[in-house]
Amino acid sequence: MTAPMLLTDSQRQVLLWLALAVAGWWGVSLLAPVLLPFVVAAVLAYALRPVVAWLAARRVPQWLGAGLAIALLMLVLLAVVLIIVPVVTQQWPLLREQIPPLLERLNAWLVPLAQRHGFDIAIDVEGVRALLRRLISGHEGQLLDHVLASLRIGGSAMLAVLGNLVLMPVVAYYLLLDWDAAVTRCRALVPPPWRPAVGRFLAEADAVLGQYLRGQLLVMGALAVFYAVALALVGLKLAVPIGVFTGLAVFVPYLGFGLGLVLALLAALLQFQSLLGVLLVAAVYGAGQVIESFFLTPRLVGERIGLHPIGVIFALMAFGHLFGFVGVLIALPASAVLLVAVRRVQGLYVSSPLYRPRDAARSPEED
């Protein structure tokens, strides 16, 4: 009989770490719904930590600085809601009166053009008017009844959502209070031989993520100014609130731009009542998307975190494909951390025997 193969200490260590990684992944997958608000709170605390540190440097107590940072974030979110809700509530009911005349004008241009080419095409304006009447002004009570019924049926789910919305800023506040101690406790869990390398990696990742946040704020500010000024030049009355909202909402890729575009087109349709005005607003948003995608984000975000403009586009597409909408949200910050890891792995590879055998003779180019 052959003797059983004994594992070396390094092999047992690798297997132990693999087992811990699998157990950790299983636990995270099992508790994902519960962990989500805590993960979001940790992200909020990390993003607000520089604000608390800045206030602490000016002798503001940490408990007060953390409260001010959370309150500032809540005020920004409330301001965004107050910008978008009045625009929708004021403009939406006007659609029922404004869209049919626009369609009649379109019919007056489209029908003769189609007849000259042998087609009989016309828009059913009365049908559209009846549809708008049913959607906008006839079923508000029924819609409210359906919403209330759904709340009664899924009351536990709604309470869970509301509870998470309240829980996240509370957890973020306590994380900000205990941030330094929590970081120290987490570092103490790292095996002592690994601590220098892990510390350098985390410090570099923290610096890169800080550059990402600053670059993203610059992109948001630049786009808010661009959309507000460009829409005002077009003549849109709601240029400032819609432009500022669009600029701030681009932090959420695609969704923020899409909401701003819908609001702007809706306002243009009701104000100008002409195809030209709507096309001008659409052109502003088309130009803004080109500027943001091919200049601002690659230059102000990509270059700050060390990503090539092509790398920024690839990261957005790859993470979106792998993780959906959440992947688009985390694409750039996750790529920043991965970039630090890739640099470390590249350094290990270049200094390894796989790339440069130790007994290989030095080439003339190296001398």
Rank of each mutant, 00 (worst) to 15 (best):
L20M: 07
V80E: 13
L68Y: 06
H321D: 04
E204P: 08
L6Y: 03
R185L: 11
G235A: 09
A264E: 05
A361P: 12
R356D: 10
L77D: 01
L132K: 00
E104F: 15
L31P: 03
A182W: 05
P112I: 11
Q216Y: 01
R58T: 01
G247Y: 06
V34H: 10
L217H: 12
R116T: 08
L176C: 03
L213T: 11
L44T: 07
V312G: 09
G210R: 04
G320P: 00
R58M: 03
L189Y: 01
A71P: 00
F314V: 12
Q90V: 08
V345F: 13
P101F: 14
F314Y: 02
A157F: 15
F38Q: 06
W179Y: 05
P191R: 10
T89F: 08
G138W: 09
L175H: 04
G127W: 12
Q211T: 12
G311R: 08
L113V: 09
L269H: 05
L175N: 07
V240S: 01
I99P: 06
Q13V: 10
S352G: 05
F245M: 00
G27H: 03
F319K: 04
V161Y: 13
L275F: 15
R362H: 15
V350W: 15
L113C: 05
L16C: 14
G215S: 03
L296K: 03
L167A: 02
A32N: 13
R214G: 07
A32Y: 13
L233I: 12
G258S: 13
R12Y: 00
L209A: 08
R58V: 07
L209F: 05
A230F: 15
A79R: 14
Q98G: 10
P192W: 02
A283V: 05
W92E: 08
A268E: 09
L255H: 00
S274H: 14
G118I: 14
L135F: 13
P112S: 09
V161N: 06
A66Q: 06
I242H: 03
V14M: 14
G141L: 15
S10Q: 15
W25K: 15
L143E: 01
L233R: 15
M158E: 13
P192R: 12
P353A: 02
P4D: 02
P50L: 06
I70S: 01
A264D: 09
I83H: 12
V87F: 08
G320K: 03
S156R: 14
V170T: 08
L102N: 09
G306H: 02
L189N: 00
R356A: 06
V252K: 09
L218G: 04
L94S: 02
L213W: 15
L233E: 02
W54F: 11
Q13R: 13
Q98F: 08
L266H: 05
L270T: 02
H117T: 12
R299M: 10
V76M: 08
P196Q: 05
E366M: 07
Q62G: 10
L223Q: 02
P309R: 06
V40F: 00
V40H: 08
V80H: 11
S335L: 08
L223A: 03
A149V: 14
L296I: 10
P241D: 04
